[in-house]
Amino acid sequence: MRWSRRVLTISGWALSGLALLVLTGLMLSILGVVLVMGLSAFSLSLFTTVTQGNGGGLLNAIEGAAVISIGAMLLAAPIGIAAGLYVCEYRSTRWASAIRFLSDVLVGVPSIVLGYFGYVTMVEWLGWGFSVAAASIVMAMLCMPYICRTTELALRGVSNDLREAAYAIGADDGQVILRVVMPAALPGILTGALLALAISVGETAPLLYTAGWSSFLWDGRRRKRRMNSAASSVVVLSRSRLLIR
């Protein structure tokens, strides 16, 4: 074997192995930093008291994240699942490809643009102020395309034999979809909804523009009431230091 080939092989393996090593190392560094710094400040009062200035607990942030995400799911799950159903079961129609295209476009829109849209339309124009309603609606817009896509994929996984058998014993469209296809695809649909929930819990930028932030617990008002979310707490608490730069 010529030395140039030997050098290519050895250096190729070395470089690609190094790339993988560096990536895993950085990953461990992120996990390590979050765990070490987080655990040193960990206590039960973190979950039972609200934020006061730069101290206190995170109860308001955790509650805010839960309220906004649940609100978003209540809006996004029915629409997303119904859209996914239509796109899969009526896939040959023109509407189905239009919906699929639009949901792909929505995935491509940066989250901050959605957040700013919510700010301009709901917070400013409709006069809701920073609110649970605005935040949940924007989060629902963010999650909907993911739910639609995973629902479609889950329904596609259901074998056509099941549908044909149901039609053969006299079921109509609604019975086939609701009683036969949906139960079979339920695990996949739930996985997709959970994935969307994870996305919405971790999202920050749009919430700064729609939910605002506050140190108080929710009083049940859907409008004109600032909310805080766990992810935006990270930003807001480090904000004073950011602005110095």
Partner: peptide
């Protein structure tokens, strides 16, 4: 194991990346 590890990177919220960048 390493595949899961690398894909976990995709599941980390972006503020956590920002915080890590800020601290480390």
């Amino acid at each position: 194991a390493i595949s899961i590890m690398v894909e976990l990177l995709a599941a980390i919220p972006s503020v956590v990346f920002g915080l890590w960048g800020y601290i480390v």
